[in-house]
Every structure is written in structure tokens, then in C-alpha cells.
């Protein structure tokens, strides 16, 4: 097989004394769509932040295109980052700029193009996410789902090699969510992007994923293709696929103790 484009080796990380990731090792190959699953608060967003060098690991290695993100110089990091796009979970649009300026910003700062070219490219990207005609709106004038899509447009303005999406379809109606799935497939086939998606929508997982990774307790519980996931006998994986709630804890003494604990 080809060289992996993203390599994570034994990644450990913590916030204060709380350990979040405890030894993540995975390879992501060029032009695959890699889905990260896991319960809320298990560290998916944290993992994405490490991939772009926003957080520094306690231990472990992160290689992007063979370059260590942790020890790379600022120039090397920036060169990599220009070819990466990250869609933040909350969008993280610049609130002081219009939607159009948000999407155009990376182009304006990194490419010597004419402003008319940049305007066309901005409209193109906004069109892709179904926001044509909104370039003069401020982020505060958009709905939650529209912000998400505007942020996605911003993440793909530079036509990145690697696109990282943190819950791209959370908070979207089923039609638009399906549209985002289609867009991800299109980006993968037409623009040959490597795409890492964090999502909770199992329907969308089975639509887009080449490989799936399930995080649990800071470790990888499962890593494999869709078919492998469907055949898995692991109770936790099954619980995830079947959308089953945790069995309720029926020990009344324990429950009472938890409530009364100092």
C-alpha cells in the first residue's frame, strides 16, 4: 500500500491531570475517508486539534506527510497547514468579518491573486455548501447549520490535501446533511482529498467511510472497514451501530452513595 499521509504513534494527551487520549496509533492513507467515532467527550476534537498542531501531546508522534508536527519549525508547520483544512466543531468563523471575507481570508493572505479572482473562488465555495448569495451576511446573522456550512466552505477554500471535519452535519436537517455527505464524496473523488470526519450520524458513516475508528476511554476500540465493523462481535461496537443506550445501573445503594458523595 502507499505511504500513509497521516501517522499517529502512541499519542498520549491530558488536560491538567485528566488523561484524555491514552496511546492512539493509527495511519490514514491518501484519498481515503476516515471516520472517527466515539462518545461525546471521549477526545475526538482533541485528536483533531493534535493533527493540526494546536495541542501538543504529552507523548507520542504525529507525522503529516512524513513531517513531525510536534517538532517541526513554524515554517514547516505553516507550509503543511496551508494544505490542510479544519472545520471546527463550533465553526469558529471570524465574527468581525462577513461570510465572504471569512471564506476569502486564506486566499487573500496566502495567494497573490486578483481580488476579482478571489471573489469568484469565494462564491464557488459558498455555492458548494449551498450558501450562494450569503457572502455579505455577518456570521451572527446565520443559523447554526448555516454557520457550520460557511465554516466548511472556509476549510476548503485553499483546496487542501487533507480536510478535517469535526461533526460537519451536526445540527443540520436531513436533506442538507445528506448534501454534505455528497459534498464530502465529491471532494474525495474530484479533488482527491484525504478526509477525516468526526461524526455521530451512523447513516452518514456508512455513506462516506472507507475506514472507521471507534474511540473509547482514550483508546482505539475498533479500527477497520465498514464491512469489518458490521461483522464485529464487540459488544461496544454493536451498541454503537444499533444506537443502544447504556444498561441502566440498577444498584440502588451505589446510586444513593454517588448522590450523597461529598
Amino acid at each position: 500500500m502507499t505511504e500513509p499521509i497521516i501517522t499517529v504513534r502512541d499519542l498520549h494527551t491530558s488536560y491538567g491531570h485528566r488523561k484524555i487520549l491514552k496511546g492512539i496509533t493509527l495511519d490514514i492513507y491518501p484519498r481515503e475517508t476516515f471516520v472517527i467515532l466515539g462518545r461525546s467527550g471521549c477526545g475526538k476534537s482533541t485528536l483533531l486539534r493534535h493533527l493540526v498542531g494546536l495541542n501538543k501531546p504529552d507523548k507520542g508522534q504525529i507525522l503529516i506527510k512524513g513531517i513531525d508536527m510536534v517538532t517541526a519549525s513554524e515554517e514547516e508547520q505553516n507550509a503543511l497547514l496551508r494544505k490542510m483544512g479544519l472545520l471546527f466543531q463550533n465553526g469558529a468563523l471570524f465574527n468581525s468579518m462577513t461570510v465572504g471575507e471569512n471564506v476569502a481570508l486564506p486566499l487573500m493572505e496566502h495567494t497573490p491573486q486578483e481580488s476579482s479572482t478571489i471573489r469568484i473562488m469565494t462564491r464557488l465555495k459558498l455555492g458548494l455548501v449551498g450558501l450562494s448569495g450569503f457572502e455579505n451576511f455577518m456570521p451572527s446573522q446565520l443559523s447554526g447549520g448555516m454557520k457550520k456550512r460557511a465554516a466548511l466552505a472556509r476549510a476548503i477554500t485553499m483546496d487542501p490535501d487533507i480536510l478535517l471535519c469535526d461533526e460537519p452535519s451536526a445540527g443540520l436537517d436531513p436533506i442538507v446533511a445528506a448534501g454534505i455527505d455528497q459534498l464530502i464524496l465529491k471532494l474525495k473523488t474530484a479533488l482527491r482529498m484525504t478526509i477525516v470526519v468526526v461524526t455521530h450520524e451512523m447513516a452518514s458513516v456508512f455513506m462516506i467511510a472507507d475506514r472507521i475508528c471507534l474511540l473509547h476511554d482514550g483508546e482505539i476500540k475498533f479500527l477497520g472497514t465498514q464491512a469489518e465493523m458490521r461483522q464485529s462481535k464487540d459488544p461496544y461496537v454493536l451498541q454503537f451501530i444499533e444506537r443502544r443506550a447504556d444498561d441502566e445501573n440498577l444498584d440502588p445503594d451505589q446510586y444513593l452513595q454517588d448522590l450523597m458523595a461529598e
Partner: peptide, 20 residues
């Protein structure tokens, strides 16, 4: 301004766009 941008992860967004 800068504090609000930090809270809403806009500073992080700048950094991921290779803007200091």
C-alpha cells in the same frame, strides 16, 4: 477583541490557516 476571539476558537482558526 482578542479575548473574545480566543474564547470562540477564532485564534485557533487563524493558526490552522497558517496565520500568526
Amino acid at each position: 477583541e482578542i479575548g473574545t476571539m480566543k474564547v470562540s476558537e477564532e485564534l485557533d482558526a487563524l493558526q490552522t490557516m497558517a496565520l500568526n
